[in-house]
Lab assay of single mutants.
Amino acid sequence: MVYKIRDKETGKVYEVTIDEETNEITVYDVKTGKPVKTVNMTIEELKEAGYEVEPV
């Protein structure tokens, strides 16, 4: 599923895909559409880390 996340401190917005089964999150560069990095976190962990998470 695709989400937009926003860093509450910097205001930067990222587009991510989240595999609900493995909790693998792939972060994409919004301008190029290319993957930047992959992390292993849940949506709740993202929120605790200071991100706003919205489904696209």
Rank of each mutant, 00 (worst) to 15 (best):
I43A: 03
N23K: 11
T38L: 08
P55K: 10
D29G: 01
E52A: 06
I25H: 01
E54Y: 13
T32G: 03
K47D: 04
V56T: 09
K12N: 11
T42M: 02
K31D: 15
A49F: 09
P55M: 12
I18T: 04
M41R: 04
K12G: 05
V30Q: 11
V30R: 07
V16G: 05
P35C: 10
R6P: 00
T22Q: 08
Y3A: 10
M41F: 08
I18R: 05
E15N: 14
E20A: 13
Y14N: 01
N23V: 05
V36K: 04
E21L: 12
K4L: 15
N40S: 11
D29Q: 02
E45G: 08
T22P: 01
K4T: 09
E21V: 12
V53A: 04
T17D: 03
D19H: 07
V16A: 14
D29N: 05
N40C: 13
P35R: 11
E24N: 10
N40I: 14
D19S: 08
I25P: 00
K4H: 13
T38I: 10
V53I: 12
K8T: 08
E54T: 09
E9A: 14
E24A: 10
Y28S: 05
E15D: 11
K8R: 10
I5H: 00
K34N: 09
I5T: 01
G50E: 03
N23H: 09
R6A: 04
T38M: 09
E21T: 12
D7N: 11
T10A: 01
G33R: 07
G33N: 07
E24K: 11
K34G: 04
V13A: 05
V36H: 05
P35G: 04
D29M: 02
V53M: 07
G11M: 03
D7V: 03
N23L: 07
R6Q: 07
N23D: 07
E20K: 12
K47Y: 10
R6V: 13
Y3H: 09
V27D: 00
V39S: 04
G33I: 01
E15F: 15
Y51R: 01
Y51F: 10
K37I: 13
E44G: 09
V56G: 09
E45H: 07
D29R: 00
V13F: 07
Y28Q: 04
K8F: 05
D19R: 06
T38A: 05
N40Q: 12
E21N: 13
N23R: 09
D7S: 08
D29H: 03
I43L: 13
N23F: 07
K12Q: 14
D19Q: 06
D29P: 01
T22V: 06
T26H: 08
E44A: 12
Y3F: 11
D7C: 15
M41V: 08
P35A: 13
Y51E: 01
I5P: 00
T10G: 03
T17N: 05
E48M: 12
V30N: 09
V16K: 00
Y51K: 01
V56L: 12
V27P: 00
T10C: 07
I43K: 04
V36I: 14
E9D: 09
T17H: 13
E21Y: 11
T10L: 02
E21R: 12
T26R: 07
E9Q: 12
M1T: 12
N40H: 14
K47P: 02
Y51A: 02
K37Y: 14
G11W: 02
T32A: 04
V2R: 15
K47N: 06
G50P: 02
V39P: 04
P35N: 05
G50Y: 06
T26N: 05
T22Y: 07
E20G: 10
R6G: 01
K12P: 00
T17Q: 07
E15S: 10
G50V: 03
K47H: 07
P55E: 11
E44M: 10
Y28D: 00
I43N: 01
K47T: 09
Y14G: 00
T32F: 04
M1I: 13
E45C: 07
L46W: 04
M1W: 09
E24F: 12
A49C: 15
K47M: 13
T42W: 00
G50D: 03
E48L: 13
K37V: 14
E9S: 12
I5S: 00
I43G: 01
E21I: 12
K37A: 15
T10F: 01
K12T: 12
G11S: 03
E20D: 08
T22C: 11
V30S: 13
P35L: 13
E15W: 15
Y28M: 10
Y3M: 14
P35Q: 08
P35S: 07
E54H: 07
E21H: 12
V39E: 04
K8H: 05
Y51T: 02
E44T: 09
V56Y: 07
N40P: 06
V53L: 10
T42F: 02
D29C: 06
N23Q: 08
R6N: 03
T38S: 08
T22F: 06
E52H: 07
D7I: 03
K4M: 14
Y3R: 09
T17A: 06
K4V: 14
T22K: 15
K12I: 14
K37H: 11
E44I: 09
Y51C: 08
E54K: 04
M1H: 11
D19Y: 06
P55N: 09
D29Y: 02
K31R: 07
I18S: 02
T10H: 02
L46K: 00
M41K: 05
E15Q: 12
T42S: 11
K34P: 01
T26I: 10
K34V: 09
E45R: 07
E52K: 03
Y3E: 02
E52G: 04
T22N: 12
Y3P: 02
V56I: 12
I5R: 00
G11H: 03
A49G: 07
E15A: 10
Y28N: 04
T42P: 02
G50R: 05
T32V: 02
G11V: 00
K37G: 14
V27N: 01
T10R: 01
E15V: 15
Y51G: 01
Y3C: 12
V39D: 04
E48S: 12
